[in-house]
């Protein structure tokens, strides 16, 4: 009997380990290497007006969301309603990073679905996207008042994720 105990324990351990791996959630979601570090600086023309620049200099002072989006991104459409609600609640400023997209398409999309962003930076060449380690839209970065990256979420936002992953990381903000 005794000789079966160890293999059994080993196999059970392995099963627990593998199940934990499976339940870890989206295997594509990697922790951003920028968490705890200052957001990489950038300055880009805004989507709606190429003469106006926008960048990290605009973000400091309060908690800020930077949402990476594109018109070709199906999941961006899925989270758009939530972003509109969040913008209407005025609980946090939301900036967009329009990623690998075309200006006319993106402007049309905001016209049709509404524009939750204070402004969107226009990055068709993936210059800033690469500096920020963006690898799939939608991605949402939470910056603290000092401009440090507190959290990055891969995939569409919804109220549950907002409460669990974002609000809980915003110290001193009314929940």
């Amino acid at each position: 009997m005794n000789r079966f105990i160890w293999p059994l324990v080993l196999v059970l351990g392995l099963i627990v380990f593998l199940v934990m791996g499976l339940r870890h959630g989206d295997p594509r979601a990697l922790p951003s290497p920028f968490i705890g570090k200052p957001a990489p600086e950038f300055e880009l023309p805004t989507l709606k007006n190429p003469e106006v620049m926008i960048g990290t200099a605009n973000f400091a002072g309060e908690y800020t969301l930077v949402n990476v989006w594109a018109t070709w991104c199906v999941m961006c459409r899925a989270e758009h309603g939530f972003l509109m609600d969040l913008a209407a609640s005025k609980s946090i400023p939301i900036y967009g990073l329009n990623w690998r997209d075309s200006r006319p398409d993106a402007i049309r999309w905001l016209g049709e679905l509404g524009d939750p962003y204070i402004a969107s930076a226009y990055d068709p060449q993936n210059r800033v996207g690469m500096d920020w380690g963006v690898y799939g839209a939608p991605e949402t970065f939470l910056l603290d008042p000092e401009g440090t990256v507190v959290y990055k979420h891969l995939g569409p936002l919804d109220p549950a994720i907002w409460e669990r992953e974002f609000l809980s990381r915003m110290q001193g903000v009314n929940q």
Partner: peptide
């Protein structure tokens, strides 16, 4: 690559 995307 590592500073942007991590060791992975």
């Amino acid at each position: 690559l590592v500073t942007r995307y991590g060791e992975f």
